[in-house]
Write a protein that binds this DNA or RNA. Structure first.
Lengths: 125, 125
DNA sequence: CATGATACATACTTTGGGGTAAGTACTTGT
DNA sequence: ACAAGTACTTACCCCAAAGTATGTATCATG
């Protein structure tokens, strides 16, 4: 987990904007390339670590746990580890996390519309 | 405008994911810290360059035009320049851009709910 | 006895997004 | 004559996000 320097101008700006815009508030929680996709996969139900990994073949393990931890810190999902060997860890969306489905759905609907408009072939997701 | 190297693993991964996930498709068009905020301000109607600038005091001019150009390339807004001095340039959302309000609204609604839940003071936006 | 599965952790490097600062062209106002 | 406004452009630098690679603990199974 890369640590974040608090003293940069970037972060100063971000904090100011955070106080001013709900959209930025959301982007700070689900922004980036991987977080929305993780959420997307968890919206269909709780999943084991390895299940998520298999569902997203192109993410590195480092990125996956890193974002899972961030999402956990942001109260979007919970982690449950059964003390067995081999380890059995499941990730489940919280209420906050589940309510994001309206956002994810709005995004998906817009995406499909826009792909059609720009004649991009539709994906299988 | 910083050029993007096409040959990186990052971009390879991104292109693969792009073909698989509508959410990533959206994130590539409106992701980052500034684009959603620009869109947010244009949703209330066409604006001059200087108006957008004044509405977003914390963005640098470089970032502003850079993102305006990217949004234009992505067909989310159009640029109209009147050939007068001093220059008079207006930015207007396209149909695609306007339709993003469902996404922006879903985000805002979730944000306010989540802020309440986490007892963050509500912003004035 | 060694391989594989599971769920990570850690070190090291790259890169591209963003910041800062300065310049440009043209005209209007004082 | 000089500053100010408008809409950019350009150059240079920094750092945080992402990638690559390897290590760890535990047990089951061949």
């Amino acid at each position: 987990m890369t640590k974040i320097k608090e003293s940069s101008t970037y972060n100063a700006n971000r904090e100011i904007v955070l106080q001013e815009c709900p959209v930025t508030y959301v982007m700070n929680k689900i922004g980036g390339h991987w977080k929305p996709i993780i959420l997307y996969h968890l919206l269909s139900g709780s999943k084991r670590y390895s299940e998520i990994k298999r569902a997203m073949p192109h993410i590195s393990e480092k990125m996956l746990i890193q974002h899972l931890k961030q999402l956990e810190n942001d109260n979007l999902l919970t982690r449950e580890a059964k003390p067995v060997v081999p380890p059995y860890v499941t990730y489940t969306l919280t209420e906050s996390g589940k309510e994001l489905d309206s956002v994810i759905k709005a995004m998906s609907m817009w995406a499909f519309k826009d792909m059609k408009r720009n004649r991009v072939e539709e994906p299988v997701c």
